[in-house]
Amino acid sequence: MELLHRYTKDGLNLVGAYWEPKEKKACVVFTHGMFDNVIENNFIELIGENLSKEGYGFIFGHNRGYGVINSIIVRDPVTKKAGNKIIGSTYEKFGESIYDVDLWIETAKELGYKKIILASHSFGCLKNLYYLSKKGIEIIDGLILISAPDTAGLVGRREESKKMFLEAEQNIKAGNSKKIMEGKMLNIFPISSRTFYTFRKGSILDIFPLVEKPKSFGIFSDINKPILVILGEKDSVIVDTPEKDLEELKKRAIGTNDFSSKLIYGASHKYIKKERELSFTIVEWMKDRY
């Protein structure tokens, strides 16, 4: 595994972990979820090692939402003057994630890959879907969604969210958009007002509406490339039951004639102690198609 240091188009210095294969059949570009990073992720190393053994490249690219609160080197794209920016999942702006996904896709191209499969876990799935909605589906050759959440829907159906959205809105109107909320994300992590406010229905991240199940399912239904959806039996993002959720997504994947899903029994959202099954599922799906 090699660490890659790259700058996004808006000047952030991000780190990517790259597993290089002997041959370059295709590259899986992975977008992580909230609060995640390459050091503390429990399954990413196994996936990278197993994919590279089969001739596939693997890039786990940090995005500006890695960790809780972090200081990232930022360089002005014009003047090249360097400084630091405090971001992390606590402060990130969802719309800016497009720069991060684009960085690692372009890196894969620079490394010589002709086929790119865009993969993600948790909140990263929404970032990848948003990216495709803006940049176009033709950029990729396949899509892997691991524990994809309807964040806006799930947050919206929690009673305490009404009070939190009101608090966030008041802080933003008062010019305190970076003010930390009194309540915590997932009852654990601090979250800024501006970041939490994007979790409301109708925002730009309301892009995977599994809770409300509207007639139009958005970009997910437009994807005309092979899709693999993976869900843990005990996942925290489940809307109805894991079986019903996967069946609903199969019905919504009307743009592709190659939809696959895998329910990993006993698995939680982080797939602890189920890493090998998760890795095997991805590797075998790749070997069947690329």
Rank of each mutant, 00 (worst) to 15 (best):
E138P: 06
E138S: 08
I139M: 09
I140D: 00
I140T: 12
I140L: 11
D141K: 01
D141W: 13
D141N: 09
D141S: 15
L143E: 00
I144T: 02
L145D: 01
L145H: 02
I146E: 01
I146H: 03
S147N: 12
S147V: 00
S147W: 13
S147C: 10
S147K: 04
A148N: 14
P149M: 15
P149L: 12
P149D: 08
P149A: 12
D150N: 01
D150P: 04
D150I: 05
D150W: 04
D150L: 07
T151A: 01
T151W: 03
A152V: 09
A152P: 06
A152F: 02
A152Q: 06
G153Y: 00
G153T: 10
G153A: 04
L154D: 03
L154M: 02
L154H: 00
L154F: 10
V155L: 10
V155S: 01
G156H: 03
G156M: 13
R157V: 14
R157W: 12
R157F: 10
R157S: 05
R157A: 02
R158F: 05
R158L: 14
E159C: 00
E160T: 14
E160R: 11
E160C: 04
E160A: 10
S161F: 07
K162N: 01
K162E: 06
K162D: 15
K162G: 08
K163P: 01
K163S: 10
K163M: 13
K163I: 05
K163E: 14
K163V: 09
M164H: 05
M164E: 14
M164A: 05
F165S: 09
F165G: 13
F165N: 01
L166W: 13
L166G: 09
E167V: 11
A168V: 07
E169A: 15
Q170L: 13
Q170A: 12
Q170F: 00
Q170R: 02
N171C: 04
N171M: 11
N171F: 14
I172D: 07
I172R: 01
K173V: 12
K173H: 15
A174W: 04
A174Q: 04
A174L: 11
A174G: 09
G175V: 08
G175S: 09
G175N: 01
G175F: 07
N176D: 07
S177I: 03
S177L: 01
S177D: 07
S177K: 14
K178G: 08
K178T: 08
K178Q: 15
K178W: 04
